[in-house]
Amino acid sequence: MRNPYRTQKIAFFFLLLSTLLIVVPVGLIVVIIIQKGLPAINWQFLSEVPQQGMRAGGIFPAIVGTFYLVSGAILFALPIGLLAAVYLTEYAKDNLLTRIIKLAIVNLAGVPSVVYGLFGFALFVVFFKFGASILSGSLTLGIMILPVIITTSVEALESVPASFREVSLSLGVSKWQTIRNIVLPNAVPGILTGTILGLGRAAGETAPILFTVAAFYLPQLPASIFDQAMALPYHLYVISTQVPNVDEKVRYGTAFVLLALVLSMNLVAIVIRSKFRKKKKW
C-alpha cells in the first residue's frame, strides 16, 4: 500500500529544495562581491580618476558616465514608452495593427543586448553621425529598456479600475481629461516601478554601450553629450580582461559599486510598489 502522506512529504521536500536553490546563487553573488569588494571602497575610490593604467586610483569617471547614460536613456524612453502605453491601453482598438505592435514589443524585449549594441552603432553612430557618444549610447539603452517601460506602464494603466473612467466620462469629462486627471495619477506608482527597473537594467548592461559610447580610459569627464564616456559595466570588463595585473580588490570594488547601484534602484522600486499596494483600497 502506498502512503499518500509520505508521497506528499517527498513532493513537498523537492519543491522546497528547488525553491531554495534559487536563493543560493543570488546570496552567493552578493556575499562574494561584498566580501571581496567592500574593502576597496573608500572616498578616494569613489571620487578619483583611475591611475597607473587603471590599476590604482578610483572609478569616478565610470560612475559619472553611467549616471549620464542612465539619465539619457530614461529621458528618451520614459516619454515615448508612457505615451505608447497610454495609446495601447486607452485608444487602440483590438485590430491587426495593435496586435502587431504588441508582438513587436514582446520581441523587442527578447532581443539580445549585443544586437541592440550593433543596431545602435549602425543607426546612431554611423547613420546619424552622432559618433561614439553619450547621445548614441543613451539612445541605444533607451530603445533597450522601452519594452520594460511600456509593459509595466500598460499593466499600471490597466490596473486602474474601469469604473473610474466610466464615472469621469459620465460627469462630462472628456477622454483625454479623464486620462490626465484620473487614470495617470492612479497609475504613477506602477509606472515609476517600471521606470526604475528599466534604469537598473540600463545601468548594468555592457553590450549596448560597447560600440556606441564606452571609452577604454578617459582622464577627464565628458563635456557634452557628443563626448565618449566611461561606464561602470564596461570598465569592469576592461579591468577584468584587458588590463593585466589589476588588483582583485579594484575589480571587486567596481563590481560592488555597480551591484549596489542596481540593487538599490530595485529596492526603491519595491518600496514604491509596496507603499502603493497599502494605499490602494478599491
Partner: peptide
C-alpha cells in the same frame, strides 16, 4: 444628463 452607478464608486 448625469449618472449614478450600481456600485458606489468614489475616486481615491
Amino acid at each position: 444628463v448625469g449618472m449614478v452607478f450600481q456600485r458606489p464608486n468614489p475616486f481615491p
